[in-house]
Design a protein around this nucleic acid. Structure first.
Length: 473
RNA sequence: GGCGAGUUGGCGGAGUGGUUACGCAGCGGAUUGCAAAUCCGUGUACACCAGUUCGAUUCUGGUACUCGCCUCCA
């Protein structure tokens, strides 16, 4: 059996991954709050955990992995967005949810098995909060319900902080109804014009954090294998999830239950700096895909490749240069594997070993380079497939003629043949003229040589019209 | 102030207690009507200072710098 090792934030060590139930490996990843387009940083955990999902499916079988990623569709940012735009909350969350799915699919992410919306689990959240109050881990005060951090002795264990240290940081909101400044909100009152639900504590809405505890419990149970997200979520979000879930399910002392493995990806930077609107280096996944600020669009698989070329626990810098290199490499590999007509799946040992070693995708990619060099095309193709880069997703009119009609492709090939004929006849002036005209239409003619036989290849870069191409014949 | 991560050749980026990562770029060569592609060859890098060791880029301690989190954030 293949051994997967993962760095567990809980222990800060790389550990052998052993699922609770091999027949149902369970993973929960914190999804987006749906109030706006996902920015490029949001795509990192999606891609990282997508690779892990694919690896788990490979190792344990596609039917033996359950991957849950939620949509948080109740949040004050959404309320604010609704208020300023005059649109309904549902309209905004529905639209943003669809955008998110579109954008993440574009970077090659498989849909998780379950994508629960927080608003569909309000009942479960209320139930969980009631249980916490009954057990003395939470208290109601002025229409709010707060989690009492002092009731959970291991609070802070994940992020390595003590309650005292955090209070010393003095950056917490101190509300008069809090027993401890670090206590966090489980439920808060809503006014008439805010979204809300009836609860034992009056009309209100859930605080941040509780939705993930409720949904993971409903869909994966009290204990599951992996919980993932960006490392900025480690505190307070994941810390609070742990406190709520462990206390709700009788693990307030042993610290057991809930997720066995906590995985956190490092942050993304853009051109060496933290992405921010004021620096002008902020962009969404959609901006990148479609092109923005005068820059050409970057295909989804190129974005994916760039992300995977840095280990997930290291800060990653997004640069235009990396995107170019990635594109060149992918194009080269696809050209190599395109003629393969086998569906044989046989990734190399080294490739698998790299992935299994804490998802070392850069090392895995290095192995793919080696396979490409040695022309081990089945292993190359299999490796690409395993990390979701086997075939173009949004490449458009690329060098492979993807997205180009058969008719256009046929015409381009006829032009290539005509060019070759001129060359064979040593009529280089005619050949060069044809090559130039074709180039103007976005069709590049090049010579390839195999077994001492020369042949011409047409590469379609633009979107030439059929009429124009016929004009060259 | 507290917690944590990082510092590898021109760039990107793995890894290791002693021997070539790898990719891109560069350089030399082959091939080539031109061009591209391709092929061959080519680079003794591991922030700094101590310590452990026969030997450290790799382990330990410290210094410097960078970055993230502690407030919404992946």
């Amino acid at each position: 059996m293949t051994v997967i090792k993962l760095t567990n934030t809980k222990t800060r060590k790389k550990e052998v991954f052993e699922p609770i139930d091999r027949n149902n490996v369970r993973m929960y990843v914190c999804g987006p709050t749906v109030y706006d387009r996902a920015h490029i940083g949001n795509a990192r955990p999606v891609i990282v955990f997508d690779v892990l999902y694919r690896l788990l499916r490979h190792v344990y079988g596609p039917d033996h992995v359950t991957y849950v990623r939620n949509f948080t569709d109740v949040d004050d940012k959404i309320n604010a967005r609704a208020a300023e735009s005059g649109r309904s909350i549902r309209e905004i969350t529905d639209e943003t949810t669809q955008w998110y799915l579109d954008d993440m699919r574009a970077v090659g992410a498989l849909d998780p098995n379950e994508m629960p919306r927080a608003t569909e689990y309000i009942g479960a959240m209320i139930e969980m909060i009631e249980g916490l109050i009954d057990k003395g881990h939470a208290y109601a005060a002025e229409g709010h319900v707060l989690f009492a951090v002092e009731s959970y002795e291991k609070y802070g264990a994940l992020s390595g902080r003590s309650i005292d240290d955090m209070i010393a940081g003095a950056r917490v909101e101190v509300a008069p109804y809090k027993r401890n400044p670090m206590d966090f909100v489980l439920w808060k009152p809503s006014s008439e014009d805010q979204p809300g639900w009836d609860s034992p504590w009056g009309y209100g809405r859930p605080g941040w954090h509780i939705e993930c505890s409720a949904m993971s419990y409903e869909l994966l149970g009290e204990s599951f294998d992996i919980h993932g997200g960006g490392n900025d979520l480690m505190f307070p979000h994941h810390e609070n999830e742990i406190a709520q879930s462990c206390c709700a399910h009788g693990h307030e002392h042993d610290g057991g239950g809930f997720a066995n493995f906590w995985l956190h990806n490092e942050m993304l930077q853009v051109e060496g700096k933290k992405m921010s609107k004021s620096l002008g280096n902020f962009f969404t996944v959609r901006d990148l895909l479609d092109g923005h600020d005068g820059m050409a669009g970057v295909p989804g698989e190129v974005i994916r490749f760039v992300f995977l070329s840095t280990h997930y626990r290291k800060p990653m810098d997004w640069t235009a240069e990396k995107a170019e290199q990635a594109k060149a490499t992918l194009t080269k590999w696809w050209d190599l594997t395109a003629p393969l007509d086998t569906h044989e799946f046989a990734p190399s040992e080294k490739f698998l070993a790299a992935l299994c070693d804490d998802l070392n995708t850069p090392a895995a990619i290095a192995e793919l380079h080696r396979l490409a060099k040695e022309k081990d095309l089945v292993a190359l193709q299999s490796g690409l497939e395993l990390i979701g880069l086997a075939e173009p997703i949004t490449f458009g009119q690329g060098s492979l003629g993807v997205g180009v009609s058969i008719e256009t492709l046929g015409l381009a090939n006829r032009i290539a043949a005509k060019w070759m004929a001129y060359r064979t006849a040593k009529d280089f002036s005619q050949a060069d003229a044809l090559k130039k005209e074709a180039s103007n239409l976005g069709v590049e003619l090049t010579v390839t040589k195999e077994n001492n036989v020369q042949s011409a290849t047409a590469t379609i870069n633009g979107a030439p019209s059929v009429q124009d191409l016929e004009g060259l014949l």
